[in-house]
């Protein structure tokens, strides 16, 4: 088994477009969960609405690429308002229930044959047409060029998505940095700790929670764009609940309510995930482990078992994540 090959492909994933899409979604989730204490279990829904908004607007309606981006972002804002208005006045768990259901509804609508003229159904939007011609045309890298980083190499197309993706990550982190050191961010943290106390100090808690939901949802939308542009396809199952839960794992692994937590978590998680997949696939092919434990068909589920075990160990031994502050968790909250 080629260890260097597994390592380099995992490293490639840890820097590449998919990781970036996850990282941007996770940065949005950090606003919700890390800073404002909102339990959004439907980050996939925000990404999906934006990705479909972009793809359908260009490929089906024939609108311009830039206008379609705005439509995608507007879709995420509308989704945030739809989810937030009825639930943000209620206890935190109601938002969790509604968001996870809404994200699944969006994915199911994308899969349904009824709307397949617009969405392309379960295979994604490719049958209804390409939507990233304008994006590809803007690629500044010369034809035939590729990004060579020694043991890993990215194609010209991937390099362009990565340039945009890393720029978006930097932009999102800058907004987070500025917002969370401002009095606005302080109100959000207060709401996370105890919203009644914040209300008693004259802050409109509902409005702040809504702003946080919209802002984090917009970051989720940017993540959705990166997914869509990297693949020139919007496939409904990209936006399953798995996406949201990966983002949560990344966030907790890196450290919630820490600026660089979600980015570090995304890189580390996506590296480990791909490293495990590669290793287990190779081991299964070599048939060195007993078949009750590992065969080529079992390697997929076994990755999840191991990742789950890792998550449990993380929560036991380092619940604050890598960048977190242990002191915070030892406090008696409320």
């Amino acid at each position: 088994m080629d260890f260097l090959q597994i390592l380099s492909s995992a490293l490639q994933q840890a820097l590449g477009p998919t990781m970036l899409a996850y990282a941007i979604c996770a940065i949005g989730l950090n606003i919700h969960f890390g800073y404002a204490g909102l339990l959004n279990f439907g980050q996939a829904g925000f990404a999906a609405v934006a990705a479909y908004g972009l793809a359908i607007s260009v490929a089906y309606l024939g609108l311009s690429f830039w206008l379609s981006l705005l439509i995608g972002l507007a879709g995420a804002v509308v989704l945030a308002l739809l989810l937030g208005v009825p639930t943000l006045r209620l206890r935190a768990d109601y938002l969790a229930i509604v968001t996870i259901a809404a994200a699944e509804i969006i994915r199911r609508l994308g899969r349904s044959t009824t709307f397949s003229d617009y969405t392309g159904g379960s295979d994604g939007t490719r049958p209804i047409g390409s939507f990233n011609d304008s994006f590809v045309a803007l690629n500044p890298f010369p034809q035939g060029w590729s990004l060579d980083l020694g043991i890993i190499r990215f194609t010209r197309a991937d390099a362009w998505v990565m340039l945009v993706g890393w720029a978006l990550v930097a932009f999102c982190l800058l907004v987070m940095f500025l917002a969370m050191r401002s009095p606005w961010g302080r109100v959000l943290k207060g709401i996370r700790e105890d919203e009644e106390a914040v209300r008693s100090l004259g802050k409109n808690v509902f409005s702040y929670k809504m702003q946080a939901l919209v802002l984090g949802g917009l970051f989720g939308a940017l993540g959705g764009f990166v997914f869509a542009l990297a693949r020139d396809n919007v496939q409904p199952d990209t936006f399953s609940t798995e996406l949201t839960f990966y983002c949560y794992v990344m966030l907790i692994l890196g450290g919630a309510a820490r600026l660089f937590g979600p980015l570090l978590g995304a890189m580390l998680f996506w590296f480990l995930y791909n490293f495990l997949v590669g290793t287990l696939n190779d081991l299964a092919g070599l048939q060195v482990l007993p078949t009750w434990l590992l065969t080529t068909t079992k390697s997929g589920p076994l990755v999840y078992v191991l990742m789950g075990l890792g998550m449990v160990l993380l929560l036991i031994y380092r619940p604050q994540g890598i960048l977190g502050d242990k002191r915070e968790l030892s406090l008696d909250v409320r």
Partner: peptide, 25 residues
């Protein structure tokens, strides 16, 4: 008592001030 546990004492206090311009996003 509703002390905001994972905020510093000083941040608890600053949060109390009314009419802060920086509390708009």
């Amino acid at each position: 008592t509703k002390a905001l546990s994972r905020m510093t004492v000083l941040d608890n206090m600053r949060l109390g001030a009314m009419g802060q311009a920086g509390e708009s996003f």
